[in-house]
Design a protein around this nucleic acid. Structure first.
Ligand code: FES
Ligand code: FES
Lengths: 142, 142
DNA sequence: TTATTCAAGGACAAATCTGTCTTAAAAAAA
DNA sequence: TTTTTTTAAGACAGATTTGTCCTTGAATAA
């Protein structure tokens, strides 16, 4: 479904969001421990998200990655930045483009599923997911 | 969503199904022309499906790939053979396994989408999709 | 000012996915 | 039997994804 980079990216952002709510600014070592991911690869992904303006970063002692406490970041922005929007727009059978004028055999059924995924990513706030994480109701590793 | 191999695989099977309804047995050249895919790569995929018993094949002059006319093959079998069933069972954020006892932050929402995809693949008959194809209502290339 | 701590960036390596080529083997037709 | 047509199979090559390593430069603290 999502690429590894995207999976790590979402998990990293959720952890960073949780820490940001406590005014903490985790560094890459802390992040990759918390989400159980390869550290240098995770660093790449976080850098990419920071370049895209999705994460904020601060260098130097006590630096790290963080989010504004009142961020309205949604899952969809993370996914689109890392994996592009083919997953939200592309044809399920790989035709050059998905359109009801030139539909593939599964177009009607696939649109329903794909739009469900899209809506889910567009409606889900990172800060809300991070709150459940804080309650210990959900997990980022194992 | 699906791998390239799986996209080609589904399109190939749908074309083969359509031809089988007309008692034809297309060979690899005809198949890859009909679905606009790289011929040797498509051959690999069709061989894999034939080994798995999903497609039938016949060597020699006038040979090719085919399906029984009354086949009840469903999309899910093609997908599981080529891409495995992680897409139907795996965690959206890449945790080792998806379970409501140890859910990731998007578990509840993701389950809905993933089950939608699963149901779609399990309920869709290849022969029915091939019939629409025959009517010229849907397309396998461009 | 200097040393330390950190993100940023780029070069590299391994693994997987995608795609190609060649040869073998089966089956039918000549 | 011989030739032709076809799938089957495996070795190979390129591209992409995943993962590692090392250097640079920014920011802070001492
Ligand atoms: S054309 Fe294939 S999903 Fe729309
Ligand atoms: S645990 Fe992640 S989707 Fe179920």
């Amino acid at each position: 479904m999502f690429s590894k980079a995207c999976e790590y990216g979402i998990r990293a952002v959720l952890f960073i969001a949780k820490q940001s709510q406590k005014d903490l600014r985790p560094n890459i070592t802390e992040i990759s421990k918390a989400i159980d991911s390869p550290e240098p690869f995770t660093a790449k992904v976080c850098q990419q998200l920071a370049r895209a303006g999705i994460l904020l970063s601060k260098k130097g002692p006590n630096g790290g990655f963080y989010l504004e406490k009142d961020s309205t970041l949604k899952l969809a922005e993370i996914v689109a930045t890392i994996d592009g929007d083919n997953i939200f727009k592309g044809c399920g059978l790989g035709l050059r483009e998905c359109s009801s004028e030139h539909p593939c055999p599964v177009h009607d059924q696939f649109m329903v599923v794909r739009n469900g995924l899209k809506k889910m990513c567009e409606n889900t706030l990172v800060m809300e997911l991070a709150a459940n994480l804080e309650e210990g109701e959900t997990f980022l590793k194992v």
